[in-house]
Design a protein around this nucleic acid. Structure first.
Lengths: 205, 205, 205, 205
DNA sequence: CATGAATGAGAGTTCATTCAT
DNA sequence: AATGAATGAACTCTCATTCAT
């Protein structure tokens, strides 16, 4: 008997099928929005009946939960590695942005869902970890930006909170148009994005 | 005059009350998402019963329609004025961005709704004008960026389509956190945003 | 203070306007059915707003009531005159049928409504007079048919109740296709109908 | 076989249950009228909740549709057989009438619904087949009557269109009072009806 | 007399969820 | 593992009716 007191009802069976179903669900959630997605639609896409999903999952919400939490877990694995390396501020930003685009590449659907739904989900206790993550995220970025300003790497005349918001949003919004397997690799997109954010789009005079 | 007057599609009634109700509806749509918003909730917020809304509007969807279309109408009034002035590429970008933040200031809720819902709404015939607008929008921005690159105002080493997407998204995503009456005026936010996008956040070496 | 304890609220004003409105209402009821007819529709047709009808009438139901009861009153004026004349059975049938088609000519809409709705209305206490009328109607017709059979005017080999039903229904169903001012006068239709019912459509051999 | 199977428009499920539910629905529609019948009422009668009906049917309207169309299909099976036999005019009329009463016996509720609702339903595209059927019906009857007049079987002094209407209506109106399992078999009713229509109710002089 | 705005009950419908098989 | 059938709550919308103006 493991430590977790989760219902073992749904925990059974091949984790592979779960993965498949979650991938399908994530895709549909991303395409149509969580609320607008019916459980029937997911089941259709998976070639089963709506009720059958409940053999695998407790509820529609728990699918969403699993999609988002496993995405965030992976994301923070990457971020924590970057932050633990204690690079210079510019290099940290570069590494975080690159990591982010890699994550978008891997979890496009989850990121798109996160983008659209996290705001109102964060209020629910079940999704408290979304707020926690955002907090941690903010701390990491703001800290790095501050270090950069203090060290003379970043401009001091910009409002640091505005800068944070702009940088944060542009990175993640990319999930709404990014298509894996397209022309640009995530690293290439990161490079271009960083070039723009760090050095601007105007020609230097 | 016994001639029958056709239904004006509930367009009658005092336009002031309509405005009030639409403002309330937009706020609720923006806060919770269109789908997750019940007509009852809007009515509650307006101090009336759900059914009473149907004296003023045909449907929940027509409220959304009116919110989005009147926002876009105003937006394009501003944009068209800027584009008609035929400024230099950098000045055009500056004017468009400033205009956009002003619009966010005036129609925060509508912009937030647009941000979240336009993608899947654009598929419906009724909301075809969303796709049209996006098309026009893209043309204006891409054209200006191309002019800027050709004229030496903007860097030629950046992928112009990626640049367009980044610029476009960051501007509008601001609607998700912007609060009118806050510390920064829309013009101030535009200034900072432009400074960042045009000249970068890194200190020039 | 008169004997009736009716609300005098709606009893006011020009009876002519009431007539007009009732004529309109009857037409719409007949065309679309009582249940499917909205009070708004009637008001539209009358060039006023739905609420305004309630100055003239207590309720939608009371319009229906007035339409049906005033039709039945007129109908029985005619029938009672015929029955009081104590004609022979064949002549009585002829007179009743002719009277009926005249009534259809005068009150087409009311008859059509009666045809469609009387069956389930008769169960409601308010419309008890519909059942009463039907009873009286049945008695008059069955009595005449019996007299005719006894006296040798009508065939004895037919089931008298079936005959009654057929005769009754065919007369009134005419209201569903009859258009006043058409090719045939009510008297002409009555003549043809009687010829058919009394003598059959087959050529005598 | 991973190929997606399109919605069969709820046409799945055991056809038996569908039949049962449609029989119940038809009964309630016939008794109270389509509009006045609530989906909840049908569900009650079927011992289930209103929402559960939607597992079997798309909508209230589609129940009506199925009731009427399957009735008409059967009806025309019978009629077409009669017409294909190319009998004499009198015999054709006799066969059509008999067939009609048999159909009333089998589908009393459907016929009653048809009688009450077909007129305004026929205007809707979905129920266009009602108008088609009526057209075919009219052609068959009028043609037979004309043949009969030409061949000397039917009286030439009657207006053939009026005759058609009378005959048509009386047959079908029977559905409003007919109770299966009563004193008279459909064939007996047909016989009496034909005797009346063909030879009249008056004694021959 | 009529309007404009609202009420409130109830309608048809949707959908996450359950559960015996 | 999955199906088929049902539940029950909630939703959007309709409509007869009311009433202050």
């Amino acid at each position: 008997m493991p430590a977790a007191k989760k219902k073992t009802t749904t925990a059974s069976a091949s984790p592979e099928r779960r993965r498949e179903l979650l991938t399908i669900a994530a895709e549909v959630f991303a395409a149509h929005g969580y609320n607008a997605t019916t459980v029937r639609r997911i089941a259709d896409e998976a070639g089963m009946l709506a009720g059958s999903l409940y053999y695998h999952f407790d509820s529609k919400e728990s699918m969403l939960d699993e999609i988002l939490s496993s995405f965030l877990t992976e994301l923070w694995d990457g971020y924590d590695a970057v932050l633990a390396a204690v690079l210079g501020p510019r290099e940290t930003i570069e590494a975080l942005v690159t990591e982010s685009f890699r994550e978008i590449d891997r979890h496009r659907a989850a990121v798109a869902i996160y983008q659209k739904e996290s705001k109102h989900l964060a209020a629910q206790p079940r999704f408290g970890y979304l707020a926690d993550s955002q907090q941690k995220f903010k701390k990491a970025w703001l800290g790095t930006l501050e270090r950069g300003v203090a060290g003379g790497a970043f401009r001091a005349d910009l409002d640091i909170r505005l800068t944070y918001r702009f940088v944060r949003d542009t990175v993640w919004v990319a999930a709404s148009w990014y298509r894996p397997g397209g022309q640009h690799s995530p690293e290439e997109i990161a490079r271009q994005y960083l070039s723009m954010v760090l050095d601007g789009i105007a020609v230097r005079t």
